[in-house]
Structure formats: structure tokens, C-alpha cells
Design a protein around this nucleic acid. Structure first.
Length: 230
DNA sequence: TGGAGCCCTATTACCATCTG
DNA sequence: CAGATGGTAATAGGGCTCCA
């Protein structure tokens, strides 16, 4: 249950650390990346992305990536510590896509559109997973097994979404009956963890059990209930 | 069991290219 | 042109598989 506790422990409104962004502009020798360096780093990440369409993250090697990128093995270590470091960089890029789901502050605000908005949100969330399930599954696996770097990344991606959700869920309560902030935040956390777990399961076993559409509709209905006035 | 061969990671040294 | 940045050949060493 560590991820839930970790998610709930971060005070709402906390911003993400700049660590991942900062490391994109400097190579492993501490040199500032120029145009060429940026291109080479991107080429290595694109190569890793291509390889992931036919291999598990655990099968990636630095040699495979550099061959795919048409670079020398040593070049890989100029930009990344190891294969996990590339996967971390790829995970960090995806985090912003999930946060972007709440770019529109009107989302999930209008009671007339609660279900439609919920469907829109749930679909958009699942689409991100659809595009990046291999990397996101790897990120969560590393986070679950106690890798602090990946755990922080997952938390940083989740916090803005949970803040947005808990803000809206809180509005469902009349001011005189509103639970304390932490309790509302916990409701958002419970919903978010279920949302993410189901997104992971659907993409891991797409042919088994309930259809993705059934699951997404059910999630949208549950979210709608959380948003409706109590 | 252990030696050979192979593949991989990781590092170093050095040369090439870019930029101000 | 000098310093910064980028790329890689060469190499050491570890782990794995195969085979006698």
C-alpha cells in the first residue's frame, strides 16, 4: 500500500522537482548539451522507443539501443548511466502528458456535463496508457519495488491530477458538511489508483475479461457519483 | 567442473566538429 | 583560433552458455 500512502502524504499544491528536466540539458560528463548533443540523446531515446514495440523493457540493452540508433556503445554512456536511466527519461516525458489532461480548468466543473466530462477524462487517461503502457508499467513496477527515483516520478505525475480531482470532489459537499481536506484527498486517491490499475490491466490483458469500454464507462459513472452534490 | 568463446557493460583516451 | 562539445575505437572485465 506504499504508493497510496506516498501519494496522500504529499501536501496538495506541491510542485514537481526540476530534477528530470534539468538532467535533459547536461550530459553525464557535466557538459552543457548543444544542438548535436540534444539530437543524439533524442536519437537514442527514439531507438529505445522503437525497440520497445517488440521487446520488453527488461530485454533492452545499451548495445541494442546504440545499434538501433546507429551510434557507438560509448556514446550511450555519454547521455545515460544505464538502460534504466533511458527508461526513466522516457517515463519523465510521459508524466507531463497526464498532467496536461487538466489543462482545461472547466473540466468536471459543470454538473450538466459531469458524466460526459468524466468519460472524456477517463478516455484521455486511458489513451495515454494506450500509447505508453510498456513504459508506464515499467515505471510503476520500479516504484512498487521501492525504487525512490521512479516512485517520485509516479508521485509527481499523480499529484496534479489528484489535486484537480480532490478540488472537484470537495465541491460536491455542502460547505457545512465538507469533510476535512485529507479525507477528500483520500477519495481522489482511491479513485485515481483504481483508474491507473485498470488502465494497466486492460493494456496488459486486452483480450481477457471485461472490455475496456465497459471499464471506462464504469469509471466515468463512479467519478460522476463522486462529483454529484451530496 | 572448468575452460573457451561470446556478448555485454562500462571506461578511457583521443580525434573530430562546432561555436563564439 | 581556442575552448567547448560530440563521437568512437580500443579495451578490461563480468556473466552466460556450451561442450568435453
Amino acid at each position: 500500500m506504499a504508493p497510496v500512502a506516498r501519494l496522500a502524504a504529499r501536501p496538495p499544491g506541491t510542485t514537481a522537482s526540476p530534477t528530470a528536466d534539468a538532467s535533459r540539458n547536461v550530459n553525464k560528463n557535466g557538459q552543457q548539451l548543444g544542438r548535436k548533443g540534444m539530437e543524439t540523446r533524442k536519437r537514442l531515446m527514439d531507438a529505445a522507443r522503437r525497440l520497445l514495440t517488440e521487446r520488453s523493457p527488461f530485454e533492452l540493452t545499451a548495445l541494442l539501443i546504440t545499434r538501433e540508433a546507429k551510434a557507438a556503445p560509448a556514446t550511450f554512456y555519454v547521455y545515460f548511466d544505464d538502460v534504466q536511466d533511458v527508461l526513466y527519461a522516457m517515463s519523465a516525458e510521459i508524466a507531463s502528458e497526464i498532467v496536461d489532461l487538466f489543462d482545461d480548468d472547466r473540466l468536471l466543473r459543470n454538473p450538466d456535463h459531469f458524466f460526459a466530462d468524466s468519460m472524456r477524462f477517463v478516455r484521455a487517461f486511458n489513451e495515454v496508457w494506450d500509447r505508453h503502457s510498456d513504459i508506464l508499467l515499467y515505471r510503476n513496477l520500479e516504484a512498487d519495488r521501492g525504487n525512490p527515483r521512479f516512485n517520485e516520478l509516479r508521485t509527481e505525475g499523480a499529484i496534479p491530477v489528484m489535486n484537480a480531482l480532490s478540488d472537484r470532489i470537495g465541491n460536491a459537499y455542502p460547505p457545512n458538511r465538507r469533510p476535512r481536506r485529507g479525507a477528500v484527498y483520500a477519495e481522489a486517491a482511491v479513485f485515481f489508483v483504481a483508474l491507473e490499475r485498470l488502465a494497466a490491466a486492460v493494456h496488459q490483458y486486452p483480450e481477457d475479461g471485461l472490455s475496456a469500454d465497459d471499464l471506462m464507462e464504469a469509471q466515468a459513472r463512479i467519478l460522476t457519483r463522486l462529483l454529484e452534490p451530496r
